[in-house]
């Protein structure tokens, strides 16, 4: 069965979610992945939004975290402070999906600007809740378009902290839990070394070569642990297309 990179990305990220996880969703691919996870792999996971909507029905896909669809049929409609009290709650395993303009080898993210902060070449939306969930959640999964200019040696602005400078540097900052679990791109899935916290190539999608990944990454990357991802099954694709995004707003 044919499938698109977006479908492979949503499913790759969805496969990382387990029953019991509390999934913090943004918009676009992340809401697709969170919904797919709940409907395919982890029916006992819970989707919630930084705006405060907890476990909405998601009969239609929200296109912003403040979309009315994040409020409809929810277990609870709360506010931002309540929502961040969930993200950082030590009793919960919270997983946040993020996206970014730039990422470095330790999974730190830039969603603020390209160029000098004071007179940027390109200004982006800014942190929103990204810095907060990167600081507080148990785990972060990041979606990236795989391009050399996005996988960079040095971020133009570090909006959200991943593994900071590697090893135990994150914890030394005062961020005692959390960190980045994986990076899902249109070519591959990347993870982080247990000790050094440096990014490595974990999976390449069927039809993608390791060389494709290397030449689209702006820094050297360990490829020795790479395996091929299993392609989407018919069932995964059917649920994704027919139940998760029937209006084709993201797919």
């Amino acid at each position: 069965m044919k499938y698109t990179a977006n479908e492979m990305m949503a499913l790759s990220a969805g496969r990382m979610i387990k029953d019991g996880d509390i999934v913090f969703a943004g918009t676009g691919l992340s809401i697709l992945a969170a919904t797919a996870a709940k409907r395919i792999y982890a029916p006992k996971s819970v989707v919630f939004f930084e705006t405060g909507g907890i476990d909405p029905t998601l009969d239609e896909m929200p296109m912003a975290v403040a979309d009315l669809r994040t409020m409809s049929g929810a277990a609870l409609n709360s506010g931002l402070i309540e929502s961040f009290s969930i993200v950082g709650h030590k009793k919960l395993h919270t997983i946040a999906f993020l996206g970014a303009a730039q990422i470095d080898r330790y999974g730190n993210l830039n969603t603020t600007c390209i160029g000098d902060y004071h007179r940027p070449e390109v200004r982006f939306s800014g942190s929103g809740g990204a810095n907060d969930v990167a600081s507080l959640a148990s785990s972060v999964i990041t979606f990236m378009k795989h391009e050399k200019k996005r996988f960079v040696e040095k971020l133009h602005y570090m909006t959200s902290v991943g593994w900071y400078k590697g090893y135990d540097s994150r914890s030394k900052l005062g961020l005692k839990r959390g960190g980045v679990y994986g990076v899902v791109t249109n070519l591959c899935v990347m993870k982080f070394d247990e000790i050094t916290k440096e990014i490595y190539l974990a999976e390449v999608y069927p039809g993608v070569s390791i060389e494709d990944v290397v030449k689209n990454t702006g820094f050297e990357i360990d490829t020795s642990r790479a395996v091929e991802s299993s392609p989407p099954t018919e069932k995964e694709l059917r649920i994704l297309r027919e139940e998760v995004d029937p209006q084709k707003l993201v797919l």
């Binding site: 918009t27 676009g28 296109m63 912003a64 403040a66 979309d67 600007c113 004071h118 007179r119 940027p120 070449e121 390109v122 200004r123 982006f124 939306s125 800014g126 942190s127 929103g128 809740g129 707003l249």
Partner: peptide
């Protein structure tokens, strides 16, 4: 003083906000 300037999919970064930031 702000955390995020965006309009969902209709303007992932608010347009006049972006312009004002870029032009100082």
């Amino acid at each position: 003083e702000i955390a995020y300037g965006g309009n969902g999919r209709y303007a992932p970064t608010c347009i006049r906000f972006r312009r004002a930031a870029q032009n100082g």
